[in-house]
Design a protein around this nucleic acid. Structure first.
Lengths: 203, 203
DNA sequence: CGAGTCGTTGAACGGAATCAATCGTCGTGG
DNA sequence: CCACGACGATTGATTCCGTTCAACGACTCG
């Protein structure tokens, strides 16, 4: 859908009230902080993550330049996760009240916002769906198929394999192993971070 | 948040254009169908699910009476999952165009809609977070803790344990076993579908 | 009264996590 | 400019624990 494509950033044509720089690993906000701003990445990269019972951390979302983040927090009082700059980043700030007012006055903006949220819901559901596949091999295959259906059986990974492993909920060793196996069996072909699916029919 | 509480159904005060009955296991829509309506459950229960590569199915969402579903599809051309009546159900239908028009004209409705979507994003992220916990025991504990933080260490399950197991991504046998173990160790107490957490400090 | 489902426990297997070690690359600072 | 550390990518060996198969009682509903 071109609709979903064009809505990566809610604020294309808006003026941020402020711009701030964050160094790698610096927190932009923390779980429990009151929601004052909506953010967008100008340069760099931001990860939304949460801490579990014992020290483990979970990546909930990765935000790249041109994308906004913490949209879902607009209708909450506090943040429910941490935002960390995974690279040195320039972050655009939009005060919450101003954003809400704009959404109220500008139907176009509101529609874009709803489309963004809808897209996130769909993306999250897809990720959840993947997690219900027990077999590592099948999970990887399903992921590749989902991404290939949009383009033509060619996938260009934007992130590292390690990052993909954590997105798929697999140990990175397992991912490497299965990828190697899939390649040896002639099901996929790899060239760095580009993957091609060679077979359409398997089960 | 009271805000999130009051937004379970987008349509509290709206008139559905139509009402239809579905018997158990009947499809309300299927993956790939064009999006014509937004739905709400009057009576019964509806599950959103998707099929994976080999026959497995994943429950993406469970909708109870008074709640709307397929909100995220409003900004898509086709449905990305199946909707199945898991009980005999009375379903309320709202034509897509009408809904979009109302959202445009009525800021209150639009705000509620955004709040619903935001809440879904947060819920899905939380579910995803749980899936990143490998250990069955820790995953269950984290789930219980998350649910208990809102009330006072008492949890009333609305669904069966089997359903919980699939929500947690565990075989139901595993869930039963760990629950039994947790109870024997004095960490929780069970009475049917009511669970009480006895200890606050463990790791 | 059977069919269906939930709840429960036992036993065995398999596969993914984990620990460990190596190599290459990139960036940083001395 | 080189050394060092950090991190990604890769492969091997071992352990562990969650799935799976199986069986049974309780309960509901038609």
């Amino acid at each position: 859908m071109s609709k979903t494509k064009s809505t990566e950033n809610l604020f294309k044509d808006w003026e941020p009230s402020d711009t701030r720089h964050f160094s790698q690993r610096e927190f932009i906000f923390r779980q429990g902080d009151p929601v004052r701003y909506l953010f967008a990445v100008g340069e760099g990269q931001v990860r939304l993550e949460r801490n579990t019972v014992e020290g483990r951390q979970v990546v909930l979302h990765t935000t790249n330049p041109g994308q906004s983040f913490s949209e879902a927090a607009l209708f909450s009082d506090i943040y429910h996760c941490n935002a960390v700059a995974s690279l040195p980043s320039r972050i655009l700030l939009y005060p919450r009240d101003k954003v809400l007012k704009t959404l109220r006055d500008d139907w176009q903006a509101a529609e874009r916002f709803m489309a963004i949220l809808s897209g996130q819901v769909r993306t999250l559901r897809t990720r959840l769906e993947l997690r219900n596949i027990l077999s590592a091999r099948d999970r990887i295959l399903q992921y590749l198929l989902l991404r290939a259906s949009q383009s033509n059986s060619e996938i260009n990974l934007k992130h590292s394999f390690k990052h993909l492993a954590s997105e798929l909920g697999l140990a990175h060793e397992t991912l490497y192993r299965e990828m190697a196996a899939l390649e040896q069996e002639g099901i996929i072909k790899r060239d760095g971070r580009q993957i091609t699916i060679l077979t359409g029919n398997f089960k």
